[in-house]
């Protein structure tokens, strides 16, 4: 992928979302959960950017804050070159036609009392000045796009299987021809065989409608399968981001290395050198100082406890937040100069 010549559709810079922790008799704020704590990345038009990370690292919060379904505490989000964190409610509503989200839980995200027709038709009603007939046709068309039938329109969510419900969620997201879809664990609740069906469908739709996805998941093989580039989050920040193959073949951040080594491979012939991390994931209410991974990092150094590493490129398109590479930073740029000179 040639990101340089492509223009970013979405630019996230220094995004933060802190949730207050209420306590005491008077319900005063006694602390903060730093769910997203300085997240930065770009998403280019037509690409699928995968975001992985363990439970509680802030993936869903980031997804919602980008769409302003919850208000970010700090940071910038630009969509098609427009800063959206300062837009008013009316303008945001306009933007939600172009930016959609699919949620993790196909059971909880659909209103059980509404028919499929109503569920899919709702975004059309909110945004469009379409006639009843046009809406009916569009709903029928959308159902067919996601592999369901027109006669499903009059049914209720509980009459569908998990995979079918996720298709309904996808049809709803597609209703207004969005440009960007943030997919928050769209297949995590599904069985493997159903998961494959939904993943294939999402890929087909991307090609057909030239969609851009941010694909959030905790399953590294799923993310690898579907993404062009992949970012790894730890405690509210991006710690590594690069092209898919580069990330899986040549992970740089110690956390990414441990994460990849911990995924059990269904091929019994693959012998893995497993990096077993010690301890639990720290709480985002009380994140460790310096590099937040230092409490579990097998190669932590003194500096790691004190200084937060910046998220910097160590090669073209390969960003890492780790002190191991910050020293080398200098050398790498020198090397490049030497190479340039030799040419």
């Amino acid at each position: 992928m040639q990101q340089q010549i492509k223009k970013p559709l979405l630019e996230v810079k220094g995004l933060k979302k802190y949730f207050p922790i209420k306590g005491g008799v008077f319900g005063r704020t006694v602390g903060e959960v730093k769910a997203v704590d300085g997240l930065s990345f770009n998403v280019y038009e037509g690409e699928i950017l995968g975001i992985v990370g363990e439970s509680g690292c802030g993936k869903s919060t980031a997804g919602k804050a980008i769409l302003r379904l919850i208000e970010p505490s700090e940071g910038s989000v630009r969509f098609e070159d427009e800063e959206i964190t300062s837009l008013g409610a009316e303008e945001m509503r306009r933007l939600w036609r172009d930016m959609q989200i699919i949620f993790q839980d196909p059971y909880a995200s659909l209103n059980p009392r509404h028919t499929v027709e109503k569920i899919i038709g709702e975004p059309l009603l909110i945004h469009g000045n379409t006639s009843k007939k046009e809406r009916k046709d569009r709903i029928k068309q959308l159902l067919e796009v996601v592999g369901l039938n027109a006669y499903h329109a009059s049914r209720y969510p509980h009459q569908f299987s998990g995979g079918q419900r996720q298709r309904i969620g996808i049809a709803r997201a597609l209703a207004n021809n969005p440009k960007l879809i943030i997919c928050d664990e769209p297949v995590s609740a599904l069985d493997v065989s159903v998961q494959a069906q939904v993943l294939n469908l999402m890929e087909e739709l991307r090609d057909e409608f030239n969609l851009t996805y941010v694909f959030i998941a905790h399953d590294l093989s799923v993310v690898k399968h579907i993404s062009d580039r992949v970012g790894v989050m730890y405690l509210g920040r991006m710690v590594e981001l690069t092209d898919k193959d580069e990330l899986y073949d040549n992970p740089k951040h110690p956390y990414t290395q441990a994460l990849l080594s911990a995924v059990p491979d269904p091929d019994p012939d693959i012998e893995k050198e497993r990096i077993i991390l010690k301890g639990d994931v720290p709480s985002p209410a009380d994140p460790p100082s310096g590099c937040t991974f230092h409490t579990r990092c097998p190669v932590a150094m003194d500096i790691c406890k004190q200084v937060k590493p910046d998220f910097l490129p160590i090669e073209d398109n390969h960003f890492v937040a780790c002190h191991l590479y910050h020293e080398e930073q200098q050398n790498i740029s020198n090397n490049n100069l030497v190479k340039e000179g030799a040419r």
């Binding site: 065989s193 494959a196 993943l199 294939n200 799923v222 690898k224 399968h225 899986y248 091929d267």
Partner: peptide, 24 residues
């Protein structure tokens, strides 16, 4: 056979995932 083929692989490349039609 179908179950094993529908798992995305961590190693190697694949274009399209195999999927078993229908549901359990």
């Amino acid at each position: 056979k179908g179950l094993i083929r529908s798992i995305p692989k961590l190693h190697g490349r694949e274009e399209k995932l195999y999927s078993i039609p229908g549901t359990v």
